[in-house]
Simulated scan of single mutants.
Amino acid sequence: MTTGEKLAALRKKKGITQEHLAELLQVSRQSVSRWEMDVAFPETEKLIKLARLLECSIDFLLNENLEEDAGDRRTPPEISPESAARFIRECGYFFLATSAEGRPRLRPMGMIHADDRALYLVTDKRKSVYGDLAGNPLVELASYNLYTRQWIRISGRVRAEASREVQEAMLEMYPMIRQEYIRQDDMFFVIFRLDVEAVSIN
């Protein structure tokens, strides 16, 4: 099934009209119709809202090969690491909370990457945040989208990531890393893998 077909099927299953769904999402009925006919595609924030309203995962909506789980649909949809990273990149920044010497520390950060397993953060070995992350793996991060007025909150554990594949993906996504953190004799940037334990968007 296509994304549009899934949207139409789930909407009808819940007894929601296109007009009502459009009202809930603050879009036109024509937009909903175009999504369901696969003529257009919902923006990320609309996709997140659709997943919540229709009680399904974002991955289910996006993946044509993924069929609906017969399990309990009353549980909140899962948010994949890739969806979370996309949400954060749309915000443009995130705040990382660490703990050092029993005290919380909060820092604005900007570079984030994800695959289907985890989120990945970049920092500089010369900065105190590196020591915080190396000393205490428990972290939380949050980001706020000014346009949609939605927060994402993520908590989990970090560990240093040495994968060449992840490193290359980060360097491709953020070319400025080469200029700022790589010198002729040393490489100052380090990647931490964040294994997500809890995530919510509201």
Rank of each mutant, 00 (worst) to 15 (best):
P76V: 13
A100Q: 11
Q26P: 02
A134Q: 15
L138F: 08
T75P: 00
V166E: 01
L25V: 10
Q179P: 00
P104I: 05
N145E: 06
R149K: 14
S31E: 10
H113F: 15
V122W: 04
G15R: 03
V129W: 03
A100R: 12
R52V: 10
D186Q: 13
L133Y: 08
L21D: 01
G92I: 02
E180Q: 12
D38G: 01
D124C: 08
E140T: 10
N65L: 07
Q18S: 12
E55L: 07
L146R: 14
L62W: 06
S33I: 00
P76G: 13
G131A: 09
K46E: 08
G4W: 00
L7Q: 02
E55Q: 13
A40E: 00
L54R: 09
Q26A: 14
Q30N: 10
E5I: 01
E43K: 15
A51Q: 09
V196W: 08
D116R: 13
I88A: 02
N145P: 02
T44D: 14
T148Y: 09
D185G: 05
A40K: 00
L24E: 12
T3G: 02
A97P: 01
D185M: 08
N63K: 08
N145I: 02
Q150F: 01
Q30K: 01
P104F: 05
V139Q: 01
R153Y: 08
R164K: 13
I79T: 03
H113D: 11
N63T: 11
G4T: 00
A85S: 12
E45R: 12
S99N: 10
R52S: 12
L138W: 06
V199I: 15
Q184H: 12
D115P: 03
D72E: 13
L61A: 11
V27C: 11
G131W: 06
P76W: 11
Y144R: 03
L21S: 01
L146H: 14
R74D: 14
Q179M: 03
I79K: 02
V139H: 00
G102I: 08
R86I: 03
R157V: 05
R164S: 13
D185H: 13
S163D: 14
L7E: 02
R183Y: 09
G71A: 12
L141Y: 02
L10H: 07
A169D: 07
D59N: 15
Y93W: 12
A97Y: 02
E82M: 10
K49V: 04
I79H: 07
L141I: 05
A100M: 10
I154V: 15
E36T: 00
P81L: 03
H20E: 13
D38A: 01
L66W: 03
D38S: 08
F60T: 10
D185S: 13
R193S: 06
A70F: 05
T2K: 06
A22N: 05
L10N: 05
E67F: 03
K6N: 04
Y147N: 14
T2S: 15
